[in-house]
Simulated assay, not measured.
Amino acid sequence: MNEQQTQFILAFLAYAAQRDLSPAKLCRLSDVDLETLTTGAPVEMSPKQFNDLWLNACHLSGDPLFGLHLGESLQLAALGVVGEIVKSSTTVGQAVEHAVALTPLITDLFGMTVWHDEHTFTLRILPNDGHRAASPFAFGQMVCFFLVFAVHELDGLVLARIRPQHVAMPFTPEMAPELERVLRCIPSHSESDYAITFDNHFWDLPILTANYALQKSLLQKVAMAVDTVTTGNLVVADTSKPAGDSWQRKVQQYLMKNAYLGIVSLEEMAANFNISPRSLQRRLKDEHISYQELADDVRKSLALHYLETGEYYIKEVSYILGYNEISAFTRAFKRWTGKTPAGYRRNE
């Protein structure tokens, strides 16, 4: 495997740990050498091993859409290849074209093409039939991952929640509601087409390179806040400790890693962990805390972090944390610290 493929597997295992799965068990069941992976030494993985990783992750989590939820949760900054895309692009269109060209660095299960006209642009997955036959289950999961990651990549490039116009893919009826939630579009069933279409308005928009730096800053914040080890640009949960030792810790980590577009709702958080909102509330209540308290605590922690770096205007910090009005952010910050954001920064 090349460096990008190794980083992807590490991101996969980090997310599995966040979902309360043991990376060590996943690798053992799939005949994958976890120690070699985490030390950065060269490692080879057969199509069967890769397929078995996905099979075991879906089975142990009880989540048939594990790849979809991985794509939803994964930050742009977690994959080193995205940094190269950002550094070599000035517009969304350029970034999309570069991402398509770099797809073979991540997977050999399929390639991607991009086509656009005056109204739309479409990303289409082109299966590599030989490799797909060797890893059929992994293929379906990777398609889900790439489709939702494309949506989140565009989110990160322009700092907005983008809705596709059309999504085509194979799926079963029971999957439709969750696909619609994550992809923000009612999916169209197709046995052979794998594609996602966006409004061409986004094609020429300049990308916000500062947002990539923001995501890296968030990863650094997470690394300071929880017990982790770092491999390259990717923060990986410490596999020497029990995976997900508390729901409070898992929710806090997810909130911080994905806070560059605001704090996610309870419903979105629960869906990513494949449980109901009521179940998540109950598990947090058992740990004597509420989701709202955790969200508020993460907002406070990130607000202090952003202001202390001195790299962001107060208005930017307010927007990043999901406040529509700077006055609302100022009131919340004063409640947390007894000071206004400007007063806190002056005293630093």
Rank of each mutant, 00 (worst) to 15 (best):
E3K: 15
Q4P: 06
T6V: 11
T6L: 06
F8A: 02
I9R: 01
I9W: 02
L10T: 01
L10S: 02
L13R: 07
A14H: 15
Y15S: 12
A17M: 06
A17F: 11
Q18R: 12
Q18A: 07
R19F: 02
L21C: 07
S22F: 02
P23Y: 08
L26F: 02
C27I: 12
L29W: 07
E35F: 06
P42T: 10
V43T: 14
E44N: 06
P47E: 04
Q49L: 10
H59A: 13
G62Q: 00
F66K: 07
G67W: 09
L68W: 03
S73N: 11
L76C: 08
A77W: 04
A77R: 08
V81A: 03
G83N: 03
E84F: 04
K87E: 14
T90C: 10
Q94P: 09
Q94D: 13
V96E: 05
E97L: 05
P104N: 02
L105K: 13
D108E: 09
L109T: 09
T113E: 08
H116S: 01
D117S: 13
T122Q: 12
I125R: 04
N128W: 00
G130L: 05
A133I: 00
Q141P: 14
F145R: 03
F146P: 03
E153F: 12
E153C: 12
D155L: 11
L157Y: 15
L157M: 15
L159N: 14
R163Y: 10
R163N: 07
P164V: 14
F171N: 07
P173V: 05
M175W: 14
A176Q: 15
E178H: 12
V182H: 10
C185A: 06
I196N: 11
T197Y: 05
H201D: 11
W203Q: 01
D204R: 06
L205D: 05
P206V: 03
P206I: 00
I207G: 05
T209V: 10
N211H: 15
N211S: 09
A213G: 07
Q215N: 02
K216L: 01
K216Y: 00
L219T: 13
L219Q: 14
V222K: 12
A223F: 10
T231D: 09
G232F: 02
A237N: 15
A237R: 06
P242L: 04
S246W: 10
V251Y: 01
K257T: 11
N258Y: 04
N258L: 06
L261C: 04
E267K: 14
M269K: 05
F273P: 12
F273G: 07
P277Q: 01
L280P: 14
D286Y: 00
H288D: 06
Q292F: 06
E293D: 15
A295T: 04
D297T: 13
V298K: 06
R299P: 00
A303E: 00
Y306K: 02
I314Q: 13
K315P: 00
K315W: 03
V317T: 13
S318R: 09
I320T: 15
I320H: 12
Y323W: 09
A328P: 00
A328H: 12
F333T: 05
F333H: 10
K334F: 05
T337F: 10
P341N: 09
G343D: 01
Y344P: 02
R346L: 13
N347Q: 12
